[in-house]
């Protein structure tokens, strides 16, 4: 047992960090929307799915004969990250406009918005499976779609018996850059102050001249863009996607958001990484089929002792 642990600890940690970064990026969208609207945006997992397909289409169109290196790699990664962020962000704004804004205007209860979110999630999945994926790829919409390789799996350096590959570095570095950028936007810009003000007290924010509609739109745009980046990184790393790819990932990312403290940006980051690591570490002892059990057990235990999550503090109280 100890032998297993020593052999597998470092490689499992690398795997956990990589997947945890993707959880964290998706978790940001859940946490931001929750912070501002007190709404669990269940269709956020489909925003992520749209990001994976945007990257799939771009990579397939470029179709490099062999994996890229140097500037070509940097350029293509930047391209798929920006395009996926743009399309996913746009889709999130559209989603808000169609599925949530009309309800908000009519003063519907949060439960109604939640049902609308679940409906939007299923609608988007089926729309992609039945119409958009066949149209984009010319293949049956429920099949798994594969993309060509753009990043080689070269080992850059090793720590003990853990090989750190190029693709690992790209995922972690890109995720960290995006999170820092988002943190800056929310904490240092005027629009960020608007987001925090709305999260704190929507009515007071309106009285102070904040346009709620604008703030909500920007919140969805930023959260959607983060999911788009997650989609691009996911596709680069795993090279396949399917219409319901977001379902399980979305639940896990939402879990990460709650674990870190929902409504808290840094909490989402921490929650994602912690979840990824705990899953992989637990799998060393119990086997990979126990990953979900381990993850949710940890969630329940943390919430028992800290009902507001690890960091607890929410977006509204974030330092100005």
């Amino acid at each position: 047992m100890l032998d297993d642990f020593l052999n597998q600890f470092l490689p499992s940690t690398v795997g956990g960090l990589v997947f945890g970064s993707i959880y964290a990026l998706i978790a940001l969208g859940y946490t931001m929307v929750y912070g501002v609207l007190r709404l669990i945006n269940f269709a956020h997992s489909e925003i992520f799915m749209i990001g994976t397909f945007t990257s799939l289409v771009v990579i397939t169109a470029i179709a490099p004969a062999s994996p890229l290196t140097g500037f070509a790699l940097f350029g293509v990664m930047l391209l798929i990250i920006l395009l996926s962020a743009a399309i996913s962000g746009g889709a999130a704004v559209l989603l808000e406009l169609v599925a949530y804004r009309p309800l908000r205007k009519k003063g519907a209860t949060r439960l109604t918005a939640l049902i609308s979110a679940i409906g939007a999630s299923l609608f988007l999945q089926e729309l992609f499976a039945l119409v958009i994926i066949p149209w984009l790829t010319g293949k049956p919409g429920r099949n798994q779609q594969s993309a060509p390789r753009i990043v080689d799996r070269d080992t850059v350096f090793s720590i003990g018996n853990a090989a750190i590959r190029t693709d690992h570095i790209i995922v972690i570095v890109a995720a960290v850059i995006m999170m820092i950028a988002l943190d800056r936007v929310v904490n240092r810009t005027k629009i960020g102050r608007g987001i925090r003000a709305t999260a704190q007290d929507p009515e007071a924010a309106v009285l102070m001249g904040v346009s709620i509609d604008n703030i909500v739109r920007v919140t969805f745009l930023l959260g959607g863009a983060m999911a788009g980046v997650a989609g691009a990184l996911y596709l680069m790393e795993f090279e396949n996607t399917v219409f319901n790819v977001g379902f399980v990932l979305g639940i896990k990312a939402f879990t990460a958001a709650v674990l870190g403290g929902i409504g808290n940006l840094r909490g989402a980051l921490l929650g994602g990484i912690v979840l990824g690591l705990i899953e992989n570490w637990g799998a060393i002892f119990l086997g990979s089929e126990w990953k979900d059990v381990i993850a949710f057990t940890v969630l329940v235990v943390v919430l028992m002792f800290r009902p507001t999550g690890i960091l607890g503090e929410s977006l509204q109280k974030a330092r100005a």
């Binding site: 795997g15 990589v18 997947f19 795993f238 399980v248 990932l249 992989n280 990979s288 990953k291």
Partner: peptide, 12 residues
């Protein structure tokens, strides 16, 4: 979708 823990076990 991430089998890194399984891959780690097999590799070990």
């Amino acid at each position: 979708s991430d089998y890194s823990s399984t891959v780690t076990k097999v590799a070990a």
